[in-house]
Design a protein around this nucleic acid. Structure first.
Lengths: 211, 211
DNA sequence: GCAAAAGTCGATTTTCATTCGAATTCAGCT
DNA sequence: AGCTGAATTCGAATGAAAATCGACTTTTGC
């Protein structure tokens, strides 16, 4: 990343034409793969451009910088994931069931889109940079779902009323990230999507009141 | 990082003289701060050099590359942390007590060295680049401690014999990372070191057999 | 069918990590 | 003290990659 938080370039394209939209999409897709495979620092804008079949300079017609491009990657995928989640979570009554579904959807999504998973879980989620970015909102919104779910579950008596919902959210989110990272880096467990169930069986013990 | 895994430069200094040793230390200290504050991609070798009051080129007298410099950051601290842990863990009998101490030491260390925590927990721990480095071994060794502790605890009947020690390790490590990251990025919880206890109270439920 | 807006991309500039090597300082020896 | 080679320092290149520019082409709205 050559320019720190430097000013803006001339101007991004309005992107009103359909060819243009496709190009933008192609760049984003290529970026996901290249960032995921090489890691951000090793990824070259020229590689991304080649994979998307556009000249390097065209990337800057759509994205302000390499960093901005990186942060656009999760946006689209997150929206896709959310759309599915929202549609299906509504039909569930217990918080535990919702928690299980959210886990299953997320892990399933990552195992189907490992390149995205790499970019998001290994490069973006932690990074100190996130704090200043728009991505932060997406992450916060995701985390908030867990907090809300725990609060609701506590209200209903489904979970331990004495627990700190933020702590529970940290535990559930942290464990999930760790499993995803382990899967991405070491291929363990073999079946990421299937690992969600047993994992939640254990995790839920932290949330339930002792009998 | 301009050159990927490119070849070696001429040669690193032997560093036998004391002024030299101090310089090296100053660079490492500056690197910890700059990497932690800016994130690796935004951090400039020139920034580090300025903070350490040496010319940029001098950094390369001690460290092979920006990446190599990054990976040196955790080394010294990790050794320090380990030394303390080893000395004190030996005296404990129960696995639970050992787990608590390990948590307390780690969280305490991070809260006393937040700049180091940023570099290590936000930049290095997840990064895919690390896969090839010696740092990976340090991380794996740290993770292995947890696995071993759980296996031992299961053998002794202290923990649920039916649990998967790797899953438990993922849960405990993941939750710890998440809390550290949240503290570093958002300043929550206020008292990181103090958060370890309540957190383990919850987490231990995942490891214990149901009564 | 025409002006303005949108979009394209090769050439160029800028930024930064990294290298080089001549000049300087130090340690051990006599 | 003076000598010699090793250790160290750092300003000046180098080269790779990010980012910019602006002339040119295509599309849109009228």
């Amino acid at each position: 990343m050559t320019s720190p938080a430097r000013a803006r370039r001339h101007r991004l394209l309005p992107v009103t034409q359909s060819r243009s939209r496709e190009r933008r999409r192609a760049i984003l897709l290529a970026a996901t793969r290249v960032f995921g495979e090489q890691g951000v620092t090793r990824a070259r804008m020229a590689d991304i451009a080649r994979l998307a079949s556009v000249p390097t300079s065209s990337i800057y017609d759509y994205f302000g910088s390499k960093e901005a491009l990186l942060y656009e990657v999760p946006r689209a995928n997150f929206e896709e994931l959310y759309a599915e989640a929202d549609a299906r979570l509504a039909g569930l009554d217990s918080c535990e069931a919702q928690l299980r579904l959210l886990y299953a959807l997320t892990l399933g999504y990552v195992s189907r889109n490992p390149a995205w998973g790499r970019v998001f879980f290994l490069e973006i989620w932690p990074s100190p940079l996130v704090a200043e970015t728009a991505v932060r909102e997406a992450i916060d919104a995701y985390a908030l779902r867990f907090v809300t779910l725990f609060k609701e579950g506590m209200r209903r008596g489904e979970f331990d009323a004495d627990a700190d919902p933020y702590l529970l959210a940290d535990i559930f989110l942290g464990a999930m990230c760790q499993v995803v990272a382990t899967w991405l880096l070491y291929g363990r467990p073999r079946d990421l999507a299937g690992a969600g169930g047993p994992m939640l069986d254990r995790l839920l013990r932290t949330a339930q009141a002792r009998q």
